[in-house]
Design a protein around this nucleic acid. Structure first.
Length: 425
RNA sequence: GGAGAAGUACCCAAGUGGCUAUAAGGGGACGCACUCGAAAUGCGUUAGGACGGGCAACUGUCGCGUGGGUUCAAAUCCCACCUUCUCCGCCA
């Protein structure tokens, strides 16, 4: 959510900045009308309430002194009716206004490249050597199926498309990656480990910005108004919803492993094979709560932490700075880390690191005090994948494959895999 | 899932329609005094927030789990929901 006062004071400027995102801004047209109407009604109802409070005291006094208060009561009956009418109208205006504010995306940071499509994303850096194969590299789903470490067919039978059984060393590899990443972030990067609920309520989904706009992307539990989390970002960020933290608690760094669930509405026909786009996948998520002045430096650190995983796994990647059109709804600035996939002959997103500034904090009411008696300010929240596990498995299978169909296990993972060096059939 | 109880400040807790939520009382925390210092003791402080109006000082409204309702007036009465606790059932 944007700062109401900022939008009010710089309406044209905000409008122009949001336009760079290429989103539909028709809702913004009603901003000034609703904002003004709202303040008008608040003024009216509060004046009447002030009067009511005053007279109510008087009525109490009259009653105590056994004086006749009928005149006053009659008068107040009218005032109360009027209050009720105005409050009803106010409620409806505030609801509209709130809904409008919830659908406005974040303002891009000044350092974000302006662009119209994903082709305008800007490469920031590359890391690692792309391996030259002396044979035709296979796609990871073929490698995995041939090695019998992932079973897509049976998952389709048991559940449906875009699900997978991991089996044997495939399951072991997945689990090794989870542990390797969590250990790294906890021991080397100073994160506190969180294991969150996988179901969250509507308020939490709204707090981090998945709702109201993207309800169709989420899996919903029918009876409960609960949602399967699309990322651990949702429960972990919402841990501190409606809290006022003290300055010395900041920065907070959480690393959370969770399964993630996405309906992938609108992705029909894309990445239909393999581990790249599943309805359920595992991910290690990094979440930061920081003071506003620290958030951009933190974004760099956070991105570095995710990159470190790829470096230790020796997987080539590049970091892209997302342009205004590709920022997503909530981010003020976002880096995607893309890993090299030989069979695709291209880089694919494996991590997304975002600074939301106060956008989520304002929705979720996450604040802090600089001084014990100070005025609460919104924190800045950030998060990034560190990393998506399924896509990491795909990257390892493809980059570490050998001509005979076996796959070398990256050295750092071997202790997590019973010191095995290779996955063979 | 069934039955019952409870949600008031940092914590415990009193308050059952107007008599000051300007929230009793207790605890904790902080400050001051006493002390060489501390303990004990005494005195004092310890609602915060949101949203309006105002250049400002300031001022108004709303906050007793949440949302509605009744009433001239609600912490107090009514309805729904949430959370916690106890017992029973079920269960990893």
């Amino acid at each position: 959510m944007l700062d109401l006062k900022v939008v009010r004071a710089n309406f044209q400027e905000v409008k122009e900045k949001l336009a760079k995102r290429g989103e539909d801004l028709s809702g913004l047209d009603r901003f000034e009308e609703l904002d003004q109407k709202r303040r008008e009604l608040i003024g009216e109802t509060e004046t009447l309430k002030s009067k009511r409070n005053e007279v109510s005291k008087l009525v109490a006094e009259y009653k105590r002194e056994k004086k006749d208060a009928d005149e006053l009561i009659k008068e107040m009956r009218e005032v109360s009716d009027r209050i009720k009418t105005i409050d009803e109208e106010l409620r409806s205006v505030e609801e509209d206004f709130h809904q409008l504010m919830l659908t406005l995306p974040n303002l891009p940071h000044e350092s974000v490249p302006v662009g119209e499509t994903e082709d305008d994303n800007v490469p920031v850096r590359h890391w690692g050597e792309i391996r030259q194969f002396e044979f035709e590299p296979k796609a990871h789903w073929d490698i995995a199926t041939d090695l019998q470490i992932v079973d897509f067919e049976r998952a389709a039978k048991v559940t449906g498309s875009r699900f997978a059984f991991y089996k044997g060393l495939g399951a072991r590899l997945e689990r090794a990656l989870i542990n390797f990443m969590m250990d790294l972030h906890e021991d080397e990067h100073g994160y506190t480990e969180i294991l969150p609920p996988y179901l969250v309520n509507r308020t939490s989904m709204t707090g981090t910005g998945q709702l109201p706009k993207f309800e169709e992307d989420a899996f919903k539990i029918r009876e409960e108004d609960y949602f399967l989390i699309p990322t651990a970002e949702v429960p972990v960020t919402n841990m501190h919803r409606e809290e006022i933290l003290s300055a010395d608690e900041l920065p907070i760094r959480y690393a959370a492993f969770s399964a993630c669930f996405r309906s992938e509405a609108g992705s029909a026909g894309r990445d239909t094979r393999g581990l790249i786009r599943q309805h359920q996948f595992n991910k290690v998520e990094l979440v930061h709560f920081v003071k506003p002045e620290d958030s951009y430096q933190t974004l760099e650190e956070l991105t570095g932490h995710a990159e470190k995983v790829l470096q230790l796994l020796n997987l080539p990647y590049r970091v892209m700075s997302m342009c205004t059109a590709d920022l997503g709804f909530t981010a003020a600035k976002k880096y995607d880390i893309e890993v090299w996939l030989p069979s695709y002959g291209t880089y694919r997103e494996i991590s997304s690191c975002s600074n939301f500034e106060a956008f989520q904090a304002r929705r979720a009411q996450i604040r802090f005090r600089r001084e014990p008696k100070g005025k609460p300010e919104y924190v800045h929240t950030l998060n990034g994948s560190g990393l998506a596990i399924g896509r990491t498995v795909a990257a390892i299978l493809e980059n570490y494959q050998q001509q005979d169909g076996s796959v070398l296990i990256p050295e750092v993972l071997r202790p997590y895999m019973g010191n095995k060096e290779v996955i063979t059939r």
